[in-house]
Amino acid sequence: MKIGILALQGDFAEHSATLEKLGIETRQVRLPAQLESLDGLIIPGGESTTIGKLAEDFHLIEPIQEFSKTHAIWGTCAGAIFLSKDVRRKQPLLGLMDITVERNAFGRQVESFEIEIEVSVLHEFDPQNEQPFHAVFIRAPLIESVDGTARSLASLPDGRIVAAQQGNLLATSFHPELTPDDRFHRYFLSLVSN
């Protein structure tokens, strides 16, 4: 199995490191031809405006949309924004997931935070591990609403949605690549295998 990490900008090296610890081969993707023969794609955290602009300039939008028809894709933070249909402002998006996202929903950097959340799909996936998931939110977006066949996977104690899935597409507004817990990465790999 080989997983691509969109490496236009952001914390792609952190995703690679987690996957390599799991024995998975990775490839940095900066140009459309680099999507060839990959089994799945991760869009990392970063600045969504930068990633979107570079994706547009280097003609990656359509090839990634095409890739999504047959492969799993996971976006963390900026990646989740990029996967969404609507962010209530004009910026390049893949528009693949029926989710509406609010950028910087918690405010500026001083409001960035860490918290433990319950993610039931991870418990079903890994019943041995009963720990909550330690989630890191950095100038994070919120998933305002899930529509169509998209469903919420996790929310904060106040009910606001921070992870969603639609078929083989996964979006998290936090950063599992910044913590040692690899359950989200393994869950994504299970979507890749299906």
Binding site: A7, L8, Q9, G10, D11, F12, A13, E14, G45, G46, E47, T50, C77, A78, Q109, V110, E111, S112, F113, E114, I115, E116, P132, H134, V136, F137, I138, R139, H175, L178
Partner: peptide
């Protein structure tokens, strides 16, 4: 665990999001 703000992880984390930029 209660929500924690201004930890070193989130301070350093924002810089990690700026990488390659």
């Amino acid at each position: 665990m209660e929500k924690q703000v201004a930890t070193f992880a989130v301070k350093k984390g924002l810089a990690q999001m700026l990488k390659g930029g």
